[in-house]
């Protein structure tokens, strides 16, 4: 506990990505987020492969029981997939697109969800506490030891680098949908304001401006996904670390032990409450990432059908017009 409180001297120190013990072994700076990504992916794969085998309709020899999904882990997956698909994706994207992009969007959702939830497990703190029982050397020795002792922990989605890579997948998916719906020529024409504007010689000077705005929009949409996830994860964890820091601050301020204990207890209570909020945020931000990617993909699909209407919409409300209607858009720390 003391270690946790002490770590609050700078709350970001406990939130941002740190080097792992693998750095020395591989001779390069292997961040904890890298380890979390690999472990998280393995967890996702094991969880979903297991769930798929339990959700699958069984053989006829099982009788009526073959229609029932077995096991809580699989039932959670079924409820999430069925609920999000039928209540959110299908109404927003349409049955055709929702079905086509279901594998990508739900892979994204569960990947981000598991990474978010892993961040709530105090793996780093457990390792630090375990290490604190070891011997104490000089400051240099301790610093080196600290770098070598952390093998896993932290929130991978609190790393902007990780989120940008995930956003790159979203970007590729959006552009792939655009090319698939409009073709390469159609996509380029769309970036230039549409075929009517391109063929209009009198408005040639508008085309570069629209091209620049559209290209910026192309980049900003997924970038906003990455920044939103990063900000929510960092914000929540920073709040947690700050709350845990209050006890240490009271101690260093020379207050009586009873006061330090009271403040620590109160701050700890709030931290527990915030943990529940963080649990909710972990689900919410995974959903928002997946949902907005789906919305951006569906915007590309609808462009060909309602080009003028869509443009008018975007011109007035910006590229994240759909995001404004997203449930997660109202949330933020």
């Amino acid at each position: 506990m003391t270690l946790l409180l002490a770590s609050g001297a700078n709350p970001l120190g406990h939130v941002l990505d740190q080097s792992s013990g693998f750095s020395e072994k591989f001779g390069t700076d292997v961040k904890l987020s890298v380890v979390s990504l690999i472990v998280g992916a393995l967890i996702v794969l094991v969880w979903l492969l297991y769930s798929a085998s339990r959700i699958r309709i069984g053989p006829e020899s099982q009788g009526h029981a073959r229609w029932v999904t077995k096991g809580r882990a699989a039932q959670i997956v079924e409820v999430l997939v069925d609920g999000l698909y039928s209540q959110i994706l299908e109404p927003v994207m349409g049955a055709r697109l929702a079905r086509a992009w279901l594998p990508f969007l739900f892979s994204l959702f569960f990947f981000v969800l598991v990474l978010n939830l892993m961040g709530l497990v105090p793996l780093m703190d457990i390792q630090e506490i375990a290490h604190s029982f070891g011997g104490h050397g000089t400051e240099e020795e301790n610093a080196a030891a600290k770098k070598a002792m952390l093998w896993i922990g932290g929130t991978a989605t609190a790393s902007l680098s990780v989120n940008m890579a995930l956003a790159l997948w979203a970007f590729l998916a959006i552009q792939w949908q655009s090319v698939r719906e409009l073709g390469v020529k159609g996509t380029l024409e769309h970036l230039c304001g549409g075929p009517e504007l391109v063929s209009n010689k009198g408005l040639w000077f508008v085309v570069p401006i629209i091209f620049a705005v559209e290209v910026l929009g192309m980049v900003i949409k997924p970038a906003a996904l990455a920044i939103r996830l990063f900000a929510n994860m960092v914000g929540g964890h920073t709040l947690m670390a700050t709350l845990m820091m209050f006890g240490a601050m009271a101690g260093s301020a020379g207050l009586a032990m009873s006061a330090v204990g009271g403040i620590s207890l109160l701050a700890g209570g709030f931290a527990v409450i915030i943990t529940f909020l963080e649990l909710f945020v972990a689900f919410l931000q995974a959903f928002v990432f997946m949902f907005l990617t789906g919305v951006f993909i569906s915007q590309m699909a609808h462009h060909g059908e309602h080009h003028d209407e869509e443009h008018g919409h975007e011109d007035h409300h910006g590229s994240e017009s759909a995001a404004a209607h997203a449930p997660g858009a109202v949330h933020g720390h």
């Binding site: 990505d17 390069t28 700076d29 292997v30 961040k31 987020s33 890298v34 990504l37 690999i38 991978a156 790393s159 902007l160 680098s161 990780v162 989120n163 940008m164 890579a165 995930l166 790159l168 997948w169």
Partner: peptide, 10 residues
């Protein structure tokens, strides 16, 4: 921006 976490994530 850290390249290794980004590449790993991708």
């Amino acid at each position: 921006f850290e390249l290794l976490p980004a590449i790993t994530a991708f």
